[in-house]
């Protein structure tokens, strides 16, 4: 653990600077920009969860959007029934966790990418249920009019306070994940990612660890959904389709799977880049998708990996510690 204290100082400074930037960014901006920034934070949370499943535990999940749906619908139904958002949050998270366990358990019994297949089917099934069971979910018309949380002195009705509210939740979620990744469980995840066979021989119950990673990842999906509900104040099944799960997967890979700060960058690219390109009107999605392909050809380990590569060039002798890779983007 040589030099760790220096790292820690750097890390704290970096995080503080990022936080200040995140606090200053929306000030003086128009509503639309604040809205886009808020959705960037929310999708970052969803991508953080998937990053745990994919980047740390090495399993592809194609159902992150459906966990967002679970979080969003539970929160919506409860807040519409008069619950405070804070009271509606725990049920939303617990249901996401339990569904994650139930879904992951059978898929992870077998080796291979069966979790990907099962989650793909699950995502579409959730869409069908949300659409068809209109007595509960409002069907294709969705649910609307969900209130934004009010904390007495601090009401999130306006866009800017809601941004700060989301930022606060994002910071808490990131800290929690930081704790998980550094806990004994988290080290088990990493051992698993680096060498499943060795991990197993060292007594790590790979299946249980993977299942847990998936279920916790699902909770982050549920949390993102619980934030979407008050942000948009309208939810409908189409917003949680398979395409959105793939979009979250894209965020994780573009940002850098397995890097702690990858999701922040990945979500920024996926949410903000199309906005930047909108001035090209009809062509913006064409340019955007072409850019993503080019990015994957040249920076396959994600944008955050760019730094790692540069560093390796500048200080080629420094030993690369892959187990610390999640912090590489902060150096």
């Amino acid at each position: 653990m040589r030099g760790l204290s220096v790292r820690d100082v750097w890390r704290s400074v970096a995080i503080a600077l990022l936080l200040v930037a995140a606090i200053l960014l929306p000030i003086g901006q128009k509503n639309y920009i604040i809205y886009v920034l808020t959705s960037w934070l929310i999708f970052t949370i969803a991508a953080m969860g998937l990053n745990l499943t994919l980047g740390y535990a090495g399993q592809i999940s194609l159902a992150q959007a459906s966990f967002m749906a679970i979080g969003a619908y539970v929160t919506a139904l409860l807040t519409l029934a008069g619950w405070h958002w804070l009271a509606a949050l725990p049920p939303a998270l617990i249901i996401s966790f339990v569904v994650g366990l139930i879904l992951g358990y059978p898929a992870l019994r077998v080796k291979g990418h069966f979790l990907a297949f099962v989650t793909l089917a699950f995502n579409t099934l959730v869409f069908l249920v949300l659409r068809n069971e209109d007595w509960l979910t409002g069907g294709t018309y969705g649910l609307s009019g969900m209130p934004r949380p009010d904390f007495g002195l601090f009401s999130t009705d306006k866009h800017l306070p809601f941004y700060y509210f989301t930022l606060g939740i994002t910071v808490i979620a990131a800290l929690a994940l930081w704790g998980i990744v550094r806990s004994p469980w988290g080290r088990a995840f990493k051992a698993l990612r680096e060498n499943p066979v060795r991990a197993e021989s060292l007594g790590v119950d790979t299946r249980r660890v993977t299942l847990l990673a998936f279920a916790i990842g699902s909770v982050y999906g549920g949390l993102a959904g619980a934030l979407i509900t008050p942000l948009v104040q309208f939810i409908e099944p189409g917003s949680f389709g398979l395409a959105h799960s793939l979009r979250i997967l894209l965020m994780v890979v573009v940002g850098g799977a397995g890097y702690f700060f990858g999701p922040f960058i990945g979500a920024a690219v996926v949410i903000l880049l199309p906005e930047v390109l909108r001035f090209t009107e009809g062509y913006y999605l064409i340019i955007y998708s072409a850019l993503v392909i080019v990015m994957l050809v040249f920076v396959p380990s994600g944008l955050i990996g760019v730094w790692g590569r540069l560093k390796a060039k500048v200080w080629p002798k420094q030993q690369v510690r892959t187990d610390m890779a999640e912090g590489a983007g902060l150096q």
């Binding site: 901006q29 886009v36 960058i265 930047v276 983007g329 902060l330």
Partner: peptide
């Protein structure tokens, strides 16, 4: 740190500048 930070700021700056 500066790298990823700068990159992100750049993205954000552009996304703000274009609509403006």
């Amino acid at each position: 740190m500066t790298r990823s930070h700068r990159y992100r700021s750049l993205l954000l700056a552009v996304s703000i500048a274009v609509p403006a």
